[in-house]
Design a protein around this nucleic acid. Structure first.
Length: 554
RNA sequence: UGGGGCGUAGCCAAGUGGCCUAAGGCACCGGUUUUUGAUAUCGGCAUUCGGAGGUUCGAAUCCUCCCGCCCCAGCCA
């Protein structure tokens, strides 16, 4: 087990390096999906170590399999990476750029008697490989002559053989306990054009034959990868030992990020998208970087979270609450405050003159004066949230109820005089009075008012749709004890229409997350338009009250 | 009776033989402050390090055995 500092010292104290060698790491996504928070961990680790050591970190697309990869993913990956604050904005490294070198090295192996062309079928290869508990047996083609191998391999390259009919294998040890060493396939025929090399190649190197070598070509000193590649390290080293490479990258494994209440595998994420269970890769409920961004989570909050993660070899699952805490901590310091009413309940202030409008200058954040101030308008008719009024309140409810007094944030103390209902008995309006002596919210007589409500003035409030997002799955480990779909939280999105916002909110951009006081953090959604503003709830505020009295929250 | 890993509080995780009757964060519980039931702040939360033996004056740290969990039988990465 090792911590991030140990990875750093591992890097710094590496004896496999020459004294003066610069540390170079790499982040090697395969262009076949979108980046998610798990990738962010790897990104922050790799780029972080490079920065800490005055080194470099290469974004390298590991594009060795043209059947699953697509060029369209490259731009999203580059974009997400740049959003996080890493990379130059344009991709510079591709495994496919090394196909010529890789091919040459394959011939080098053949010439040294370290690789051979195998005619066994895929089924036969599997059969010959043996099982976890029984050794494999050697292919009848294993002892072909070097010239025959060379000739066959060149014909493979020329496209003379059917896909699946031949492969190039490293000649290692069919009896090895580690299956990866049982003559691993290093080149296979794939009669498919490559997104970048087009129709130049009919054979493509496997991950095992491409990764370490690409590392060597780029001068990568530390190749950090996830635990499932531990078994591949002996092969990674074997290949480098048998090839004329000048530098020796070192593979170091650490555990991938797992989080509760979500899924972090391409397969499951793709399933959610393909089945229409979410609106797309950038659905605000998705743990993808594009989804988190759309939900309003700042890149810096993600980075802080990732830097704080343990870099160890223990399989672990981080509670979503830890991520939430990180997001709240960041937003509490950096987000401006505004007021918004989700479910408007009209209040008429009977003693406030009709037609009169008052301007109130209020701070944009209690955290720092540097956020500046804005004006709120106050008028005879205002809205509060329906949830903040109870006709027959429980004991500790200190919001508004008949006869009670509360403070309207930044404005005045008001007292509820009368509840107006429609014929159905639904409350449609509250008649209240305000205390003119309490402008700004403090009473000259020093009387304490515990309840404080957010509000907007009906005079200039704007209408908006607000989408409340919550965890995508109800269970901590979705799909563990049921089908994935059964664990889905069917209420992970709740849309509220006809919400009332203070007008200054119109000026905010999509990624400028603001706090709606007493409610949470929100940001404008990309679906938003001038006439139809839409906001996403990024995350709710901590709420001790609803936790203590869940039944009091409608 | 294949190989490779991992096991410190509900979660993540420091710790590499003595200052460990085990840091820190999240979660949780309780107090204070508060014009956000937010924030801030204070306090509580492992006599114990998967278990059992052993070595040692001294062990989470070293040794032995045992138990549990994860990964590997793609011409995926």
């Amino acid at each position: 087990m090792f911590g991030i500092d140990e990875v750093r010292s591992l890097v710094q104290g590496s004896d496999h390096l020459g004294n003066e060698q610069k540390v170079v790491t790499r982040f090697p996504p395969e262009p076949n999906g979108y980046l998610h928070i798990g990738h962010a961990k790897s990104i922050c680790l790799n780029f972080g170590i490079a920065q800490a050591n005055n080194g470099d970190c290469h974004l390298r697309f590991d594009d060795t399999n043209p059947v699953t990869e697509d060029i369209k993913y490259i731009s999203s990956i580059v974009e997400d990476l740049a959003w996080l604050g890493f990379g130059s904005g344009k991709p510079k490294h591709f495994t496919s750029d090394y196909f010529d070198q890789l091919y040459e090295w394959a011939e080098y192996l053949i010439k040294n008697g370290d690789a051979y062309v195998d005619d066994l079928s895929p089924d036969e290869i599997r059969e010959y490989r043996g099982t976890l508990e029984t050794v494999g047996k050697e292919s009848p083609y294993r002892e072909r002559g070097i010239n025959e191998n060379l000739e066959l391999f060149r014909k493979m390259r020329e496209g003379e053989f059917e896909q699946g009919s031949k492969v190039l294998r490293a000649k290692i040890d069919m009896e090895a306990g580690n299956l990866n060493l049982r003559d691993p396939i290093i080149y296979r025929i794939i009669n498919v054009d490559h997104p970048r090399t087009k129709n130049s190649w009919r054979i493509y190197p496997t991950y095992d034959f491409a990764h370490g070598q690409s590392d060597a070509i780029e001068g990568i000193t530390h190749s950090l990868c996830t635990l499932e590649f531990e078994d591949h390290r002996p092969l990674y080293d074997w290949l480098l030992d048998h090839l004329p490479v000048s530098i020796r990258p070192k593979q170091i494994e650490f555990s991938r990020l797992n989080m509760t209440h979500t899924v972090l595998s391409k397969r499951n994420l793709k399933y959610l998208v393909d089945e229409g269970l979410v609106s797309g890769w950038d659905d605000p409920r998705m743990p993808t970087l594009s989804g988190l961004r759309r939900r309003g989570i700042p890149a810096d909050a993600i980075k802080t979270f990732c830097v704080g993660l343990g870099v160890t070899k223990a399989n672990s699952t981080v509670e979503m609450a830890a991520f939430d805490a990180c997001v709240r901590e960041y937003l509490n310091e950096n987000a401006q405050r505004r007021m918004a009413v989700i479910d408007p309940l009209k209040i008429i202030l009977e003693n406030f003159e009709e037609g009169r409008i008052e301007q109130l200058e209020v701070e944009n954040s209690p955290k720092s004066e540097s956020f500046g101030t804005r004006n709120l308008t106050f008028s005879r008719e205002i809205y509060i949230d329906r949830e903040d009024f109870m006709e027959d309140p429980p004991k500790k409810f200190f919001r508004l109820s008949p006869g009670k007094e509360v403070r309207l944030r930044y404005a005045y103390l008001i007292r509820c005089k009368e509840v107006v209902k429609d014929t159905e008995g639904k409350i449609i309006e509250l008649r209240c009075t305000y205390d003119p002596e309490t402008k700004g919210g403090s009473a000259p007589d020093g009387r304490k008012v515990k309840g404080i409500l957010h509000w907007v003035s009906s005079h200039d409030a704007i209408n908006a749709e607000i989408r409340f997002y919550s965890k995508l799955f109800n269970t901590e480990q979705p799909g563990k004890s049921a089908e994935l779909i059964d664990d889905l939280n069917r209420e992970s999105i709740l849309v509220h229409k006809n919400c009332k916002l203070e007008p200054s909110l119109l000026k905010f951009g999509c990624e400028e997350t603001v706090q709606f006081e007493r409610l949470g953090y929100f940001c404008k959604d990309t679906d938003s338009s001038q006439i139809n503003p839409i906001f996403n709830r990024t995350i709710e505020l901590r709420d001790t009250w609803s936790k203590l009295n869940p039944s009091n929250i409608s």
